[in-house]
Design a protein around this nucleic acid. Structure first.
Length: 776
DNA sequence: CAGTGAGCGAGCTTCCGCTTGACTT
């Protein structure tokens, strides 16, 4: 029987710890929080802000195990993470396990190494109740905000919506970026580049001033015509480049997106597997700190493979707002393991982590930058305008040997950089081969990707490593935001070229700009909800709100402020704000836009967010006649739809006539437009306009559908009409009494299955436990 | 490579942070 029980947060950590601590210690895991506010109730007494905690059902078995183990042990050590949440986990554990809060031993370590752990055991402390209170304040504030704001949205915008301190700001960022893009007016100017001839080699250079207009650019080229040029100056300066710090959750998500094309959720799930296999350290962290163990191991690797001069020991400082640094940076557990076994994704992510970690401990790259200034030979006065050719030569590659960080805005602005082949001297005369003025445009702001949104949230100190991925999935689930592509637009630009011995030639070219893939785009609902919140709760969805309340939490953690009083202070202002908005009667719903008058009925036509999303409405609920509704179709938006397009939507359903004794009608449903015939629905492909589709086309679709239906059928049974073998998207399957059943892979020829065999499969499959179906 | 297809309202919805599960019709 072990004398000591140690409780940590993660089971993988527990496993490692047990190895280090030896026989006298049993190590168990709490799997995060064991208690929380009730899930479906407000659970905060608004008179004194006392929270009502409960152990969620899925944790009861675990808590029982922990209790038994705690009762058996002589000493219990609470070893949850050293941050606000970790302290609260320890406190809840102490309470639930019946331990004395003031006396129970509390230990912490920031890295899972033997030394760190034995060290921690030597100097236990007690639970810091102030830090616990800061967590309670954080938890209760989030509950108040979320559970008071969401119902306002249900009432004023649409049921089942949600708002919160983190998600609403995430949506705001996306909506506002979209508006920046929409309102962006690009300005053009002329950039001048030249190719000079130095002996036989070419030297590319750019003029260090841009020209605002076509006329100025042309005038400049005119002045250059027939000119000879000279090198007025050659300067060389050494530069250093430093490696990026080791990965945190946020930077790992960004780099994995840029370099490997992973989604934020994908990165986290692959990293989780690596962590559970003991290959990398913990993947939810805001710290860039590396353990001494890792620093030493990295140095050894670098010195052994590349030599002493490539090694440089570095400790990085965390700069991000609100970082709590309970863990190390994300790094390989063993630096000598350059690659791993596993899936393609696992191998690639590991390689990225290994390289970034190693590079962070490598020497600076040394670069020699050469800048050559070129002026016309006839220029008398010392003018600051000149052509500049610049070249960079890596004189020592340092960390670049292993790893180079990527950036989102790479390749957006082409820079003239050249390699210099010729021997050049100051005063040397040059002739131009070609001088060109090209119209260039200012860069439109880029829409957010999942990863760049995470970066922005981290900069604002909003959200935590464990919530970045879930937040992004929440705002998509609520349909505030969609991931999608934006097609670029063609843009014309002018170009003037001056070749040696010739006149200026003008040409017009075009390019595609603004093509964006996998970007976060706001939906109508997201936009309306955001505008509603910004109008009525600017203080809550402000970019600074989190930073401000964090200041309070810090005060509470330092024991300078009473947490429940802080909550009372907040609620005193927040509650009347909610009440006011809730009871405000306005003529128009949030986001409603009047388009005009329906010429047929003379009634008002408006668009708004309806019970099921964006709709057009003709007439009002106050009229004697009920208003008519039509859902906006895909690609239409509340903000841009015209009266004409809106009225088009009322042309469905249409009837096209009889076919085989039944009416064909065209309608629009949840999944787009369809042909309805004999209770059979057939989707209309998006190439065909449902408003223009003709009788023959509709019949064709019905026939196609019938044919597909016939092919779908593999076998039925005379014993039971309710049993059939069908061919579906995932291969053959069995339908029995309205439910689908998978045919085991071992069955090679589903056609040959007998009635009895089918029933056997059905029985077997039905007995398997079913996953709770996802909400749609 | 399936199948889904209403109605504008009588019940329910919702937060953020800690953790991993057991699931693939």
């Amino acid at each position: 029987m072990q004398k000591n029980l140690v409780i940590v947060e993660s089971p993988a950590k527990a496993k490692t710890l047990e190895k280090f601590l030896g026989e006298d210690y049993k190590v168990l895991s709490s799997y995060g929080h064991i208690r929380d506010l009730k899930k479906n109730e407000f659970s905060v007494d608004l008179n004194n802000f006392t929270p009502q905690y409960e152990i969620p059902e899925e944790k009861t078995a675990l808590v029982k195990t922990l209790k038994t183990a705690a009762n058996k042990a002589d000493t219990v050590w609470l070893a949850s993470d050293e941050d606000r949440e970790g302290e609260a986990i320890s406190w809840h554990l102490a309470q639930v396990l019946g331990l004395n809060v003031k006396q129970t031993k509390r230990i912490v370590f920031h890295e899972i190494t033997k030394d760190a752990i034995l060290d921690a055991i030597k100097k236990p402390r007690h639970i810091d109740i102030n830090l616990v209170n800061a967590q309670q304040a954080r938890r209760v504030l989030d509950r108040i905000v979320g559970f008071k704001l969401s119902p306002v949205l249900w009432r004023k915008v649409k049921p089942a919506l949600s708002a919160g301190r983190v998600q609403s700001v995430a949506v705001r960022l996306i909506v506002e970026r979209e508006r920046e893009v929409e309102n962006f007016k690009s300005e053009s100017s002329y950039k001048v580049t030249a190719v000079f001839l130095a002996d036989k080699a070419e030297l590319k250079a750019e003029f260090n001033q841009r020209f605002a207009t076509e006329e100025l650019a042309k005038a400049f080229l005119e002045k250059c015509k027939g000119q000879q040029f000279k090198i007025s100056d050659i300067s060389k300066k050494p530069m250093q480049r430093v490696p990026a710090p080791p990965f945190t959750t946020s930077t790992l998500q960004q780099e994995a997106a840029r370099k490997l094309g992973f989604s934020v959720a994908q990165t986290m799930s692959v990293a989780q597997r690596l962590y559970e296999a003991g290959i990398i350290t913990y993947m939810r962290t805001d710290s860039v700190n590396l353990s001494t163990l890792c620093l030493n191991a990295s140095k050894k690797e670098i010195v052994e493979t590349l030599g002493e001069k490539y090694s440089k020991r570095r400790q990085y400082q965390t700069r991000s707002k609100g970082a709590q640094e309970a863990h190390e940076a994300i790094r390989p557990t063993y630096m000598d393991q350059h690659e791993i076994q596993g899936t393609m994704q696992e191998r690639r992510l590991y390689e990225l982590i290994w390289k970034r970690t190693i590079a962070s401990q490598m020497a600076d790259a040394e670069i020699e930058k050469t800048i050559i200034t070129i002026v016309p030979t006839n220029s008398k006065e010392e003018t600051e305008n000149c052509f500049v050719a610049s070249a960079e030569v890596v004189t020592f590659d340092g960390f670049l040997r292993v790893y180079r960080e990527s950036f989102d805005d790479e390749n957006t602005e082409e820079q003239v950089s050249t390699t210099i082949d010729a021997q050049l001297t100051e005063g040397q005369l040059l002739n131009y081969k070609e001088i060109q003025a090209i119209e260039r445009f200012s860069q439109c702001p880029l829409r957010y990707t999942e990863a760049s949104l995470v970066k922005k949230l981290e900069e604002l100190g909003i959200g935590r490593p464990s919530t970045y991925a879930p937040t992004i999935s929440t705002i998509q689930q609520r349909e505030y935001v969609q991931k999608g592509d934006k097609k670029g637009e063609k843009r014309n630009y002018k170009q003037f070229t001056l070749k040696a011995g010739k006149d200026i030639k003008e040409s017009e070219k075009n390019e595609i700009v603004g093509n964006e893939k996998g970007k976060l785009l706001p939906t109508d609902i997201g936009t309306v909800v955001n505008d509603f919140l910004v109008n009525n709760f600017e203080n809550i969805v402000s970019y600074d709100f989190t930073a401000e309340v964090e200041k309070d939490f810090d005060e509470i953690a330092e024991g300078k402020e009473n947490w429940q009083e802080a909550m009372a202070d907040f609620y005193k202002k927040f509650e009347p704000q909610c009440e006011k908005v809730l009871h405000e009667r306005s003529e128009h719903k949030a986001g409603e836009r009047v388009l005009g008058i329906d010429p047929k009925s003379g009634k008002e036509v408006c668009v708004k967010i309806g019970r099921f999303g964006p709709v057009v409405q003709i007439g009002s609920a106050n009229d004697t006649e009920k208003p008519r509704f039509a859902q906006l179709s895909k690609g239409q938006s509340l903000q841009t739809i015209t009266l004409e397009d809106a009225l088009e939507l009322f042309k469905l359903p249409r009837e096209l006539g009889e076919y085989e004794g039944a009416t064909i009608s065209i309608g629009a449903g949840r999944f787009g437009p369809y042909v309805l015939h004999n209770k059979q629905y057939v989707s209309i492909p998006k190439e065909i306009d449902p408003l223009a589709i003709e009788y023959d086309e509709a019949v064709e679709l019905i026939k196609e559908r019938k044919k597909a239906e016939a092919e779908k059928h593999i076998k039925s049974f005379k014993e039971d009409a309710e049993l059939q073998i069908l061919n579906g998207r995932y291969g053959p399957y069995i339908v029995y009494k309205g439910s689908n059943y998978k045919i085991p892979r071992t069955v090679k020829e589903p056609k040959e299955l007998s009635y009895e065999q089918c029933l056997e499969i059905v029985e077997k499959e039905a007995s398997k436990p079913k996953l709770a179906r996802k909400k749609k």
